[in-house]
Design a protein around this nucleic acid. Structure first.
Lengths: 327, 327
DNA sequence: AACGAATGTGGAACGGGTTCCACAATGCAT
DNA sequence: ATGCATTGTGGAACCCGTTCCACATTCGTT
């Protein structure tokens, strides 16, 4: 493997000249250019990025932490984040933290080890103190990680309200509300608070089903749905995250109840799977591409040394009517 | 940011001693140990991985190239690949090549630039010659990239046969067969050849619908389905890749035809979305986790310098009966 | 002719680790 | 006392680029 020294020797010039040629910085005569080009071709020379990175103390890599890429919400997020990072000249390192409990810590450590220039995290099981120790570019997707770390999230309060209003408008009287456990305070819990508030305000009964913390696999969702029907819960409306809403709807249909005739559904997130089921799911849609873009723009700025005054970013949600509601 | 020199000075020892201590290689006296540990704590020292990587000429990063992570097949693959790489002590760099046409080339170049130690590619739009030039660890997922590059794939021939037999057993007489364009010869085309062969053998009529090359987004699939119904094609069985099969089934149901009564469906891949629709899709299931595991094991071996005699790996598929077929 | 600016160059120092080598001090057996 | 493992150490050389500085040449201007 040829190095810059070999090229310099072959071309009969100094390493500095070769370096200036490669980086188009400083003066290089036409004569030297030609000789260097020939030498490079002859030796099939490719600069070692590692040496460059060492000098510059950066790698152009951003780590993205998600619980699980096969979850549609995160796979769409990762998809868009990768594209946006690419546009900014960055590469993406991906980490699923769900399976390996200490992966989160390990990836944060990479910041300090200079392996990645920044971290975008959609994950939060570590103590906030761990995050406070690190004074490096970190952006949180929908998590609170301490005052220092900017948060990108949607207006979940509005999301909860839209869902509630949709079910109310559709005349639901008894609504099954699946809510995530509130182990750790996160922005996305707002939707549940607001949903309950609006329901109460309208005097509509809700059945709150508390989900276990940090479980978002299909297997668990199916268990939950089974449990619901086993308990013989009665409801004419459902509010849940996409996957769970779909599982619940399918079971409802299998039990020969009509959707949206007997039971209405509104799901949260609005990933592509809500458009893939029949009937199409009415959903509160998060602008996932926007979340990805904003996260990347923020981390890009932070890595570039920019300081933000008001770092948190909130995007809007909207209700996309499918056929699991009538109006 | 403290360096190893600072630690050495603080502890009153040489840099070599600190290095040996860090790597647990060679002799370090108990006395030196204590002093180094104190110095490290005092300076909050963390070794710079970049410098290590430069010396060792490796980064512990493997690039995974897929057309699009938000495609369920690839998102499951990536999910499992990441987990398996993690177990092997590697980090994963992820690249979606669909949106950026020259990303494929750029990522291959990273091998030569020493940014990644290996590449697993589920993508192939580049000329095979480009791959032949690179004598570095590369593993192909379901693609032919030249004799030198090992291929991990399933037994697609059997997959095609299973699909055909399922539709035949269910008494289909006129089957709609969506097949990918064969721009580039790839292992997965085998399923189409075999499907057609078996159908012909049994004297069953097929309508071949040729898909555009390299398009696997939902939007395109919906266009295709619309086109099919616009053309008024008649069929009592369908064979297609998961997403397309689902889109087609949904439209069929919307047009008040019964599934599986009037039309039977068998999809290919068997990703989680086939279990999420109602009725559940009968599918030829690829062992995605197995593919990921084998790909990682291969790249792990190649990076470690192992030489394989018969490098290609073929896994088995199976038919998972859902409710889009009767028998 | 004199002078400064522009153009061009080679090589040392640096970034932050790892490894190897020369060398020193023990311990233990003969 | 001698020999030789074993334990332990510091520092130079190396990995491979980048940057800076001292220095050389050419050009245009007055």
């Amino acid at each position: 493997m040829a190095s810059i020294k070999d090229v310099a020797k072959e071309a009969g010039v100094g390493v500095g000249t070769v370096s200036r040629f490669l980086n188009e910085s400083g003066y290089v005569s036409e004569e030297a250019r030609v000789k260097i080009e020939e030498a490079m071709k002859k030796l099939d020379y490719i600069p070692n990025e590692l040496a460059r990175n060492l000098y510059h103390k950066k790698t152009g890599i951003v780590a993205v932490l998600v619980p699980n890429v096969s979850n549609p919400f995160f796979s769409e997020f990762v998809d868009h984040a990768e594209a946006e990072l690419y546009r900014c000249g960055f590469k993406m390192m991906l980490c699923n933290t769900e399976k390996e409990s200490n992966a989160e810590l390990e990836y944060l450590d990479m910041l300090r080890r200079h392996i990645v220039d920044g971290v975008i995290t959609g994950v939060h099981s570590l103590d906030v103190e761990e995050y406070k120790k690190i004074h490096k570019p970190i952006v949180a997707l929908d998590r609170y990680l301490g005052e220092e770390i900017p948060v990108v999230a949607v207006n979940h309060r509005k999301g909860g309200r839209l869902a509630a209003e949709a079910l109310i408008t559709n005349g639901c009287k008894k609504v099954l509300h699946f809510r995530g456990a509130t182990q750790v305070e996160s922005p996305y819990h707002e939707r549940h608070y607001e949903f309950e508030r609006v329901m109460k305000q309208h005097g509509i009964q809700t059945i709150c089903y508390e989900l276990e913390w940090n479980r978002l696999d299909s297997g668990y969702y199916r268990e939950v749905v089974e449990d619901v029907f086993l308990k013989g819960l009665e409801f004419d409306g459902v509010f849940a995250v996409d996957r769970l809403a779909i599982e619940c709807m399918n079971e409802t249909i299998r039990r020969h109840r009509k959707v949206p005739g007997d039971v209405k559904f509104v799901s949260y997130d609005g990933t592509y799977i809500t458009e893939m089921v029949e009937p199409k799911m009415t959903a509160v849609v998060q602008p996932i591409e926007g979340l990805a873009r904003e996260s990347v723009q923020l981390i890009y700025g932070l890595i570039g040394g920019r300081v933000y005054r008001d770092k948190n970013i909130t995007l809007e949600v909207e209700l996309r009517k499918g056929n699991t509601t009538i109006i």
